[in-house]
């Protein structure tokens, strides 16, 4: 939950900034001289939320680390669109690992810095959902289990987008991907498969686990800052709509994130040492349709025969709302 509370000033906490804010109330992204760690000229698609989230995360981490930050990046869109040899869009020291081992590379960097007595230099690892939840899970889990001093950030666009939108184990049920076409009696990604990386991270009982979206900048900045104030293994899972892979308009990346949260589909939470410590309540209840309908990967849910799948989505939202008390009924 957002702790920077902006009192009512025409807009409130949800806008990036505001002319009536005091300096100390300003988000990093509202500053004219923000680091812009991921700078212009990168080749992300129009409206790519992964590019946006990466700048938000990195800028906050760079400020929190007093510019002393090293980044390890798994293979995936984020790496490919930002670094076309010899050009780089990254300003912080940044190293490309391979698809599976960003966590292991980051662990090595942290160990080496420690050996050199440079614990002041902080380490961040990042990758897509494929590189985190699937092929990279062993390295990530090992990093958690050893409580290595690394902040690992997963940008979850719910598929292997860089290689052409294949299903990952973070792809939600019914979603159409290149490998789960919308055909047959259960079109799209199979029901009952997939895993929740935030829950897996929590099960490791590491010091800090959080989820965030590009629909709430201040919440995301707050979580990065909190994570950076802690040493040991930390995990941040950011939902990042992918206009290409989701079949949505490039202008809607933030709106879709908002709908994901406000419908109860994507719980925004914080956890410490395995325990759930905070949940962002729903501000304006939305139906799952507001989230699903603008996405072509769910188009079959709105055709005859899609009713069951749609009901399953509603049930998923209801379950989250109950489980995480997203309507604040129990608190």
């Amino acid at each position: 939950m957002t702790t920077v509370h902006i009192p009512f000033l025409q807009t409130g906490t949800l806008a990036v900034g505001g002319r009536l804010l005091e300096d100390e109330e300003r988000s990093v992204q509202s500053q004219a001289d923000r680091p812009s760690s991921l700078t212009k000229g990168h080749r992300a698609c129009q409206g790519c939320a992964e590019a946006l989230a990466a700048r938000w995360v990195m800028d906050t981490a760079v400020e929190a680390a007093d510019d002393k930050l090293i980044v390890a990046n798994a293979t995936g869109c984020l790496e490919v669109f930002s670094t076309l040899y010899p050009e780089s869009a990254w300003k912080p020291p940044w190293i490309h690992s391979v698809f599976a081992n960003a966590a292991a590379v980051a662990t090595g960097i942290a160990a080496s810095l420690h050996a050199q007595g440079r614990d002041d230099i902080r380490v961040l690892a990042q990758g897509g959902d494929g590189g985190t939840v699937d092929i990279g899970l062993a390295a990530v889990s090992g990093m958690f289990e050893r409580n290595d001093d690394v902040l690992y950030v997963c940008y979850d666009n719910q598929g292997y987008m860089n290689t052409g939108v294949q299903r990952s184990s973070a792809t939600p049920t019914s979603a159409r991907t290149a490998t789960t076409p919308a055909v047959g009696c259960q079109p799209g990604a199979p029901v009952g498969q997939g895993k929740s990386m935030p829950k897996i991270a929590m099960a490791h009982e590491i010091p800090y686990v959080a989820t965030a979206t590009v629909a709430d900048l201040r919440d995301l900045e707050h979580k990065v800052r909190t994570a950076m104030s802690i040493h040991g293994a930390r995990y941040l899972h950011v939902l990042v709509p992918c206009p290409l892979g989701w079949g949505a308009s490039s202008a809607e990346s933030i709106r879709l994130s908002r709908a994901a949260v406000q419908s109860g589909i994507f719980p925004v939470i914080e956890s410490r040492a395995g325990e759930l410590t905070d949940v962002q309540p729903i501000r304006q209840r939305m139906d799952v349709e507001e989230y699903l309908r603008p996405q072509a990967r769910f188009a079959h849910l709105f055709k005859p025969g899609g009713e069951d799948a749609l009901d399953r989505w509603r049930a998923m939202a209801e379950r989250n709302i109950r489980h995480y008390d997203l309507l604040g009924e129990r608190s």
Binding site: T11, R19, S27, K40, A44, L52, I254
Partner: peptide, 30 residues
């Protein structure tokens, strides 16, 4: 402050902060 400034930029920084391409420059107060 309840006025929403319909149709006229009131410098909320949303465009500047939310551009995935870092393609907006903030020119300063006013």
């Amino acid at each position: 402050r309840r006025c929403m400034s319909c149709g006229s930029c009131f410098e909320c920084d949303n465009c500047f902060g939310m551009c995935p391409d870092d393609a907006i420059r903030k020119l300063g107060p006013g």
